[in-house]
């Protein structure tokens, strides 16, 4: 098991290196001069040059790339061009905001999604199934900013129950978490339904039923545990996607998470922060995948990590 994890973690390194190179090339392919953008349109050439020196952009590109790799190896990405703070620190600060929002959203999505999925599976092909499925898939199908706009209008502007802006304690998290949960909720419900149906059709469930166990008991005790495996996988992947920062939802609710930081850093051509963000996204993705595979093993003892 430990050897497996270690091997998987080692495999991450070439992927991340590839990502780092792609990111560096991408950043320098962006049109726009960070120094001019930071200085503003009414800055003199002198001022722009001062900023270029401050950012280390006055050196040849090759030298910059060597610096970049060298810094990267020591876990340092330099200071943000926007606010002068260490880029990695900025990324981590905003990451924690995204993390909490994503966690609430995914818990909500998993809880409701699995319940809806069970209901749909148990009453398969009924109108309840159709209704639940349609609603769940509807959650995936609605543009998040449309849903966000409607929630703001109803609950913040008209009823004044929750604030619009995400940065005001737990109450500020409610509307963005609901909006963010809609998509994963639908995906999870869909998976729970089909996975449960599959398990319900398998031999051991039928045996359990034949032994005279009543239907709900079969569903909960026997079928669910087996059915949960793909659902957990899916939930984990969805969580990974949420951790990427929901650019659109964060913008609608004015929530300064990673998506917000991404938009800010791209528009300011804040190279160190863009680099940090993209590396964190890639790392997250790889780690979530690993975590999902491990959870798989816990839930299904038949899988072993030889």
């Amino acid at each position: 098991m430990l050897a497996y994890i270690l091997r998987r973690l080692l495999e991450v390194i070439p992927t991340l290196l590839g990502v780092a190179v792609v990111v560096f090339l991408f950043i320098h392919a962006l049109p726009g001069d960070p120094a001019r953008l930071a200085a503003g349109p009414d800055a003199t050439v002198q001022e722009v040059q001062l900023l270029r020196e401050r950012f280390g952009l006055d050196k040849p590109l090759v030298v910059q790339f060597v610096y970049f790799l060298n810094n990267l190896a020591r876990g340092n990405l330099g200071n943000s061009y926007r606010d002068g703070k260490p880029a990695l620190l900025s990324v981590m600060n905003h990451f924690s905001l995204t993390f909490w929002l994503s966690l609430i959203a995914i818990l909500l999505a998993a809880l409701v999604g699995i319940l809806v999925g069970i209901a749909a599976a148990v009453y398969r092909n009924s109108w309840l199934d159709l209704g639940a499925t349609t609603l769940a898939v509807g959650g995936i199908s609605v543009p998040s900013f449309f849903l966000g706009m409607i929630l703001i209008y109803l609950f913040a502007v008209n009823l004044r129950i929750f604030p619009v802006s995400g940065g005001q304690g737990w109450r500020g998290l409610v509307l963005p978490a609901l909006t963010l949960a809609a998509g994963p909720l639908g995906t999870i419900a869909r998976f729970a339904r089909s996975s449960l149906l599959e398990v319900l059709g398998e031999d051991f469930t039928r045996t359990a039923r034949a032994k005279g166990l009543s239907s709900p008991v079969v569903v909960f005790k026997h079928a669910l545990r087996n059915a949960l495996i793909p659902v957990v996988t899916m939930t984990g992947l969805q969580f990974g996607f949420l951790l990427g920062g929901a650019v659109v939802v964060e913008s609608v609710f004015n929530y300064p998470g990673l998506g917000w930081l991404l938009i800010q850093s791209i528009s300011a051509r804040d190279y160190p922060v863009i680099e940090g963000l993209l590396l964190v996204f890639a790392l997250e993705f790889v780690l979530v995948n690993l975590l999902v595979d491990l959870l798989y093993g816990v839930l299904d003892p038949r899988i072993s990590y030889a």
Partner: peptide, 18 residues
């Protein structure tokens, strides 16, 4: 793997930024 490592909108935002 490298391409998939950037979730959701990200690659699109990046490409269009260019």
């Amino acid at each position: 793997d490298v391409l998939l490592a950037f979730p959701g909108l990200l690659p699109a935002i990046g490409l269009i930024a260019i």
